[in-house]
Every structure is written in C-alpha cells, then in structure tokens.
C-alpha cells in the first residue's frame, strides 16, 4: 500500500499564516499576467516553470498538480490530497480522533484545513462553495492559470451561509 499513487492526506509543512503572507507576493497583477502569457508561448520555459512549481508545492503541501489551486481558500491545506478529493469539506467517515476514513493513521486533510484556516482568521473561507474542477488542467501550472485569470470561477465569491443572506441555490456559473 505504501506505493499506492492515489491521493492520501498530507499535513502541510508551511504554516498557514506564512501561506497567506506569501500569497500577497504571488497575487495576480498585470506583470504576472504577461509573464504567464510569455511562458505559455515557450514550451521549454513553461515546462521548467511548472516543474519548479511542482517541486515546491509537493514538498510544502503534497501538491497533486490539479492545475487549479484551492490553497488560498482552504487554510493552505490541499484538498486534492483527500483520498476522495473533496473540495467542499470533510466526508462523514472521519474517525473520532480526526483520522482519515481511508488512511486512519493519517489526519483528515479537512480537519487540518479547518484548524489552520480558523487559527489564521480565515474561517469564513470554509463556507465558500467550490465548483467542480476542470480535469483538463491537470499537470498544468496553477500559477500560470491563476495569473491568466482562469481561476476566477473556482469558488463562490461570498459565503452564503449567514441567515440574513438566505441560502440561495448556487448552481449558476
């Protein structure tokens, strides 16, 4: 089972606060958008850039290279390392001690995500509704996709759970 390539929970090696801080340096801007467009025109540069992203994010977050990064909305804890790749919160099989249903010796990624997001003051992010991922983007650079504005639709823009907002169905794209 140790060689099973399927996703398994990964506890991030980077503090959540540092993640939020670093995001400020990576936030989309016109310069990054131009860099991303340039990379996409140069396959070798794109491959090198993507490899660097892969190595960094695998080491820190157990990145699975879905190409559409959820980290900023999940306390910098990767939901794609959940064996069920759930992007909207934990399944019902979490053990009483917070263990993953599928790999009981590992802590559920969502238990970790919720702890980290709340400790960093980002608890309301957890109420965002994440849309289905685009499977075509796997193995692509999520930074390039993000800088190109392709991530704008990954999750709903505001938590819809407070009573005064009502609970509107959000199937709309």
């Amino acid at each position: 089972m140790t060689n099973d390539a399927r996703p398994r929970p990964f506890r991030p090696r980077l503090g959540a606060r540092l993640g939020y801080a670093l995001h400020a340096g990576l936030a989309a801007n016109p310069l990054y958008a131009r860099l991303a467009a340039w990379l996409e025109r140069r396959p070798r540069a794109y491959r090198a850039f993507t490899a660097a992203e892969r190595v960094t994010k695998q080491e820190l977050f157990g990145c699975r290279m879905c190409g559409q990064c959820a980290l900023p909305a999940t306390g910098y804890t990767c939901p794609m390392t959940c064996p069920k790749q759930l992007r909207n919160g934990p399944c019902g099989g979490v053990s009483p001690t917070g263990g993953c249903e599928v790999y009981p010796e590992l802590t559920c990624v969502w238990v970790v995500a919720i702890e980290r997001a709340e400790a960093a003051g980002h608890g309301t992010d957890l109420d965002l509704l994440h849309r289905p991922i685009d499977q075509r983007l796997r193995e692509q650079s999520s930074w390039v996709n993000y800088w190109q504005g392709r991530d704008d639709d990954l999750w709903t823009s505001a938590p819809l759970l407070r009573r005064e907002l009502g609970l509107q169905p959000v199937g709309k794209r």
Partner: peptide, 10 residues
C-alpha cells in the same frame, strides 16, 4: 464526525 463544530456548516 470531527470536526463537529463544522458539521452544521457543511
């Protein structure tokens, strides 16, 4: 199931 505080929100 843990995290119980999150179950209603989920």
């Amino acid at each position: 199931a843990p995290p119980r505080s999150f179950r209603a929100r989920r």
